[in-house]
Design a protein around this nucleic acid. Structure first.
Length: 381
DNA sequence: AAACCGGGGAG
DNA sequence: CTCCCAGGTTT
């Protein structure tokens, strides 16, 4: 892979580090998970929660959720002891709920294996559910100032530009090279105020505020004089284009089945191991691409051992997630053997988890975005 | 409306 | 190494 090995020169690295850390000292945002001025280091638990929330989610979106979450679960111990439904409700809106479930599971491990103290050993940390190489490096460098590299969306772009690496960052050899670069750039652990934790945060902050994907603000950049991409006029074209995703269109169906009072709707908590595990949902057919509502109703009915008869279209919700472009068709429907399903609220069992719930009750349950959108439409109808 | 952004984990 | 997870933001 042809590129200028400028980053292998230690003088270049230290000059760059100095500029970056000076810039960070004056321009970093005041974020709730960063160390308060009277603290030497931030609390590892707080850094951890923030890093998990920040996976695939932007800072501005995360802040209110983070504050609510920390308010309710201020320590690892309190999170480990939390009821899963409560925890998921606090997460609702952030999406990718597996992050929350992994965080919860990891909190239990920290309590059981590490007496409630977040571990400072890399092997222990990366062994926790939901923590991979990036997150382990981020927590240990930021909270313990360990000399560990990080590589994520921002720094992939920032580092590629510094050295004018033109290849697409998702190619394996490129990513390997960027990890090496990330490691080579790290300052020594002392002085701590300008150590690896500060460097990692500074590089990400630069990517978020200045070295943005499109139209980078090079005029504000502390590295502008020594950035190889900028010098070559390539800041707009680096990093290289990632292969385009092939989107897949899907049609899915959800059914609103009311009880005799017409005020309660059939829902259930999604079982372990399935998509949206732990969240509540309406009867929904999401598998394959079923073009016909009657087919979807028949298939779902077979699963519920009851016949579902679609009545009329209630709403169509368009939803995009990862590679899927989903059209969710929501129908009101009747169910044949409502008798066996006409449960009282306290009749729940894992074998027959379906229950009728009022809109007020639904408001208190954790749901996926589309589930919540259906509920909101019901309230306003 | 389409395009873009993107860590971790399972297989 | 590839695919999935089950959303938000930008253009």
């Amino acid at each position: 892979m042809p590129h200028d090995p400028v980053w292998q020169q230690s003088a270049w690295r230290s000059r760059l580090r100095k500029r970056l850390l000076d810039w960070f000292g004056e321009n970093q945002r005041d974020l709730p998970w960063r160390a308060k001025s009277d603290e030497l280091r931030p609390d590892p638990y707080r850094v951890w929660v923030s890093e998990i929330m920040l996976q695939q989610t932007q800072v501005a979106t995360v802040i209110p959720y983070y504050e609510r979450f920390l308010d309710r679960f201020p320590t690892v111990t309190s999170l480990a002891a939390a009821d899963e439904q409560t925890m998921l409700s606090l997460w609702e809106g952030l999406g990718y709920y597996r992050r929350a479930r992994s965080l919860h599971a990891a909190a239990k491990v920290v309590c059981e294996k590490h007496q409630g103290t977040f571990p400072d050993d890399y092997t222990d940390v990366i062994g926790l559910p939901g923590i991979g190489r990036y997150t382990a490096g981020a927590i240990l460098s930021i909270a313990f100032n360990q000399k560990l590299p990080i590589l994520e969306g921002n720094t992939q772009r920032v580092f590629s530009r510094w050295v004018a690496l033109r290849a697409a960052v998702n190619e394996k050899p490129v990513s390997n090279l960027l990890w090496q670069l990330a490691e080579a750039m790290l300052p020594p652990a002392k002085p701590q105020a300008r150590g690896p934790g500060q460097f990692n945060q500074a590089a990400m902050e630069l990517g978020a505020l200045v070295c943005t994907p499109r139209s980078p603000r090079c005029d504000l950049c502390p590295i502008r004089g020594m950035c190889k991409a900028r010098i070559a006029g390539l800041e707009q074209t680096i990093p290289g284009k990632v292969k385009q995703i092939e989107y897949e269109k899907r049609i899915e169906y959800a059914f609103l089945i009311a009880d005799r009072s017409r005020k309660r709707f059939l829902v259930r908590p999604i079982p372990e191991g399935q998509r949206w595990a732990g969240l509540w949902d309406f009867p929904r057919w999401t598998r394959g691409d079923v073009q016909d509502v009657d087919v979807a109703a028949a298939k779902l009915g077979a699963q519920l051992s009851s016949e579902i008869a679609p009545l009329k279209s209630f709403a169509t919700i368009k939803h995009a997630v990862t590679k899927y472009r989903i059209e969710l068709k929501v129908y009101t429907a009747n169910i044949a053997s409502a008798g066996s399903l006409n449960k009282k609220a306290n009749d729940w069992s894992p074998v027959d988890p379906w229950r009728f719930m009022t809109l007020t009750e639904l408001n208190g349950l954790p749901m996926s975005v589309t589930g919540r959108r259906i509920t909101k439409k019901l309230i306003h109808s």
